[in-house]
Nucleic acid binder design. Structure first.
Length: 426
RNA sequence: GAGACCAUGGCGAAAAGGCGAACGCAGCGGACUGUGAAUCCGCCAGUACCGGUUCGAGUCUGGUUGGUCUCCCCA
């Protein structure tokens, strides 16, 4: 056993990669419907971008970043999330100068140095969207709906949407004090995690799993919202209602990144060990200026693709990928063997998926092999066929075999297929 | 950063310290030199790695590495 993959990473082998292609295709298609267009940014960026963008005091920046110094003595970091890089590209390429607001999406790997766990990896993949350039609450709702559409399209059931407003930084600071006023008197009764959480991020204490009963009368952030925040949040909810997207207002929802303002939301589902959050996002009105651009409001989401794939598997919602090969050529004898590469090339040029055996296995095994790899047809070619310029084309499903001129194989396969489908339809 | 559990062939899975590491699936060869999904016969690992205890270790023990899961936190 020589080399092993780094901890917390995965190899997606043939058989699994098709599932990923399906999920990614679905993501692209949903993005297209909402008119989000793809942006591709580097997987590494200046470390400072994430420090400023994600927030110095977040767990991500404090202890989860893959940071290295490059040969030019610059500190670089493998992206732990997608938004900072997209916003950087938005600013650097002056997209704010364009007449349209930017509706962007990305699919790609993210990196966080954490202990792996069910549904959590050091290299994981996200589908994310960012709408930058408007504070219309309709966009908040649109982004929430886009994620919901994605889960629906991909075939998942049981996905729920939690939504909250975390207001502006000022609102949050005021609420923080109100909340601490409530928590301090009961601090000694709280679990030790919560006691340390009180220092770092008191809003998160209310999320505690062990002490829920103690927070009955806790103040809600929704009561601390100012007029503008309340109105914005009400609009978002109204739009979601109009769309028929089901959601639950959860005043205790807090996200792990500093940049969120107003709307914050999460998609949840059961079925991946202890983890229930499968995607999330929110509005980030201060982020663009934080990263050095002209101030522009934005809203976005990130969806965990590993978690999506795992849920699909746990729900047995495996899509059918169809036959892998149209024609498997079985050559009998040396002369036929030598004709096969040329034949394969012509079949492929004709648009068919075609393959042969390269391991010198015996005929009997080759029919089994053709079946196993999901071939629809076997093209048997031996001395007799060679002499007549034909192959024996065998439909592996029906066992029916016809002699077909070599030049007409592709055509025969197509026509035979149509017959099959008609037959099935009747 | 903390903790729990686990580690046998391509895969699944046995072996209560003692024959040459069962069995199943898959694979390959042969019976059957050009048409399979049936049958039969063969073949296919020395137990993650390094050390210790023992007459003897896959089984006990120490360490290493990897995996799984949980807390923290998140996708």
């Amino acid at each position: 056993m020589a080399f092993q993959k780094p901890p917390g990473t995965q190899d997606f082998l043939p058989g699994a990669s098709e599932q990923w292609q399906y999920v990614e295709r679905t993501a692209r298609d949903v993005a297209r419907k909402y008119r989000f267009r793809e942006i591709r940014t580097p997987v590494f960026e200046a470390t400072e971008l994430f420090q400023r963008g994600v927030g110095e005091t977040t767990d991500i920046v404090e202890k989860e970043m893959y940071t290295f110094v490059d040969k030019g003595d610059r500190s670089m970091t493998l992206r732990p999330e997608g938004t900072a890089g997209v916003v950087r590209a938005y600013v650097e390429n002056k997209l704010y100068g364009e007449p349209e607001l930017s509706k962007l999406y990305y699919i790609g790997p993210m990196f966080r140095y954490e202990r792996a766990q069910a549904g959590r990896y050091r290299q994981f993949h996200q589908f994310g969207v960012e709408a930058i350039g408007s504070e219309d609450p309709a966009l908040d709702a649109e982004v929430v709906a886009l994620g919901y559409s994605f889960y629906k399209e991909v075939g998942l059931t049981g996905v729920t949407v939690d939504i909250n407003s975390v207001g502006t930084p000022e609102v949050r600071a005021a609420y923080r004090e109100t909340l601490l006023g409530f928590l301090r008197p009961i601090k000694d009764t709280l679990c030790k995690d919560c006691q340390s959480r009180m220092e770092r991020n008191p809003l998160r204490v209310l999320d505690c799993k062990v002490d829920q009963d103690k927070f009955e009368g806790a103040p809600s952030i929704l009561d601390s919202l100012d007029e503008a925040c309340s109105t914005h949040f009400a609009r978002v909810r109204q739009y979601l209602d109009d769309m028929g997207v089901p959601y639950r207002v959860n005043p205790r929802l807090v996200r792990g990144l500093d940049y969120y303002t107003h709307t914050a939301f999460e998609y949840k589902a059961q079925g991946i060990g202890a983890i229930d959050t499968i995607g999330g996002g929110g509005r980030y009105n201060g982020l663009v200026s934080q990263i050095g651009g002209e101030d522009r409001p934005g809203v976005g989401l990130g969806i965990g693709l590993e978690r999506t794939v795992m849920l699909l598997e746990s729900q047995n919602a495996k899509p059918d990928f169809g036959p892998a090969v149209d024609v498997f050529v079985i050559a009998l004898g040396e002369r036929a063997e030598r004709e096969t590469p040329g034949l394969l090339y012509r079949l492929r040029e004709a648009g068919l998926s075609a393959d042969k055996d390269y391991q010198g296995r015996k005929t009997k095994t080759l029919f089994k092999a053709a079946d196993r790899i999901g071939a629809r047809f076997a093209a048997v070619i031996g001395d007799d066929e060679l002499a007549r310029g034909e192959v024996g084309l065998k439909n592996l499903k029906t066992q029916e075999q016809r002699q077909v001129p070599i030049a007409a194989i592709a055509e025969a396969v197509r026509q035979w297929n149509e017959h099959d489908e008609e037959g099935l339809a009747q």
